[in-house]
Amino acid sequence: MEGVYVPLITPFSEDGAPALGVLEKLAVECLHAGATGLVALGTTGEPASLSDAEREAVLDVVAGVCRDTGAPLLVGANTPGRLAAVPTGAAAALTLVPPFLRPGEDGVVAYFEALAAVSPVPLVVYHVPYRTGQPLTAATLRRLAAIEQVIGVKYATGAVDAEAVALLADPPPGFAVLCGDDTMLSPMLALGASGGILASAHLQTAAFVQLVAAWRAGDVARARPLGRRLARLSAAVFAEPNPTVVKAALHAAGRIPTPDVRLPLLPASTAAVDEVAPYLYGSLLE
């Protein structure tokens, strides 16, 4: 797994229902701009606020786009029940490290061993300790990589930390390290990450794709300035809780019918939308 994966929002219509036709168009636009694949029902898609029927409809739309285009699909699924609903044609399930319980690193490994035994598709570990409360060392990530069905990690620790450096200094064979902190994408790619799962890539998708390509080609002179420009975009997108700002930006650009989010999220502020406005049109590529 490498490249840019876009964790799709769930756009809402004026009546509050998921705008499935808009979602399909957005998915196609991201892929046509060069994204490698899509994530359905990731946290950016507000899955906890969707009904079972809405989640199924969203997944059907995104899976259909991926099937028609041949693009890899990742599906957010954190329990055996949710994993059972993942289409067998999906590339992987994006599965969160158990949140809140803080089971310890041995508990995390045992948890993923159990999920891998029943999952119909491979697993990508979603490691986001500032949300889950459970840190993982590079050694534990290597233990997870040794599980046959675990094929990668969305690495989102909020920093390019010592564990990331240790992991990428000698990455496990066949194990993808995907950056999950959008502002950290360029330095993670410089260390050897294979790509990213990036909510910011709803905007300026082609520029994110080119950043990955530049680092993988060793074109440092191109990658560094592009990485700085995209980091500023990502900082603006994440100035308020995700996906509030990206939805407001897509609405301002006329790509989705409303900027609406569901509780407990609140709409993005005018100031946040003003910060992201310069990135809505034109290109960050030079």
Results as ranks from 00 to 15, higher is better:
Val86Arg: 01
Glu163Ser: 02
Gly76Trp: 07
Pro98Asp: 02
Ala33Lys: 13
Leu203Thr: 10
Leu59Gln: 12
Asn242Pro: 00
Gly192Ile: 05
Val86Leu: 03
Gly21Lys: 08
Ile147Val: 15
Gly195Tyr: 06
Glu163Cys: 04
Leu266Met: 11
Glu105Ser: 01
Glu56Phe: 09
Gly133Arg: 03
Ala27Gly: 10
Ala217Gly: 12
Leu167Pro: 05
Glu286Phe: 10
Ala252Val: 04
Leu211Lys: 07
Asn242Asp: 12
Leu41Phe: 08
Gly192Asn: 05
Leu167Lys: 04
Ala248Gln: 00
Leu115Ile: 08
Lys247Leu: 05
Leu226Gly: 01
Lys247Tyr: 00
Asp181Leu: 12
Leu250Ala: 06
Ala138Phe: 01
Pro243Asp: 02
Gly16Asn: 13
Val220His: 10
Ala176Arg: 09
Val153Asn: 14
Lys25Trp: 04
Arg82Gln: 15
Pro87Ile: 12
Lys154Glu: 10
Val124Leu: 14
Ala162Lys: 09
Val245Lys: 06
Gly16Met: 14
Val177Trp: 14
Ser51Tyr: 13
Ala90Glu: 04
Ile151His: 08
Cys30Arg: 14
Ser200Gln: 11
Gly195Lys: 02
Gly76Tyr: 05
Leu73His: 03
Phe175Cys: 01
Ala193Phe: 11
Thr137Asp: 02
Asp260Met: 10
Leu8Gly: 08
Phe175Ser: 02
Pro99Thr: 07
Asp274Gln: 09
Ala33Ser: 15
Arg224Lys: 11
Phe112Arg: 09
Ala114Gly: 09
Pro18His: 10
Asp52Leu: 15
Leu189Lys: 02
Ala156Met: 00
Pro129Ile: 05
Leu96Cys: 05
Ala138Cys: 01
Lys25Glu: 14
Leu230Lys: 07
Leu26Met: 00
Thr95Met: 08
Leu26Phe: 02
Ala252Arg: 15
Gly21Ser: 12
Glu46Asn: 06
Pro172Ala: 01
Ala17Leu: 13
Leu203Tyr: 12
Val128Thr: 10
Met1Phe: 06
Asn242Met: 02
Glu2Ala: 13
Ala90Gln: 07
Glu14Cys: 04
Arg216Glu: 14
Asp15Val: 11
Arg255Asp: 11
Ala71Glu: 03
Gly254Phe: 10
Leu59Met: 11
Leu226Cys: 00
Leu226Ile: 02
Ala57Leu: 08
Pro225Gln: 11
Thr43His: 06
Val177Thr: 11
Gln134Cys: 14
Val273Ile: 06
Ala207Arg: 07
Ala248His: 03
Phe238Ile: 15
Pro122Glu: 10
His32Met: 07
Pro225Cys: 07
Leu250Gln: 09
Pro267Gly: 01
Ala239Gly: 13
Ala116Cys: 00
Ala114Cys: 07
Gly174Tyr: 06
Arg142Asp: 04
Cys179Gln: 14
Ala116Gln: 01
Pro187Thr: 01
Arg222Val: 08
Gly196Ala: 08
Gln134Asn: 08
Ala214Met: 03
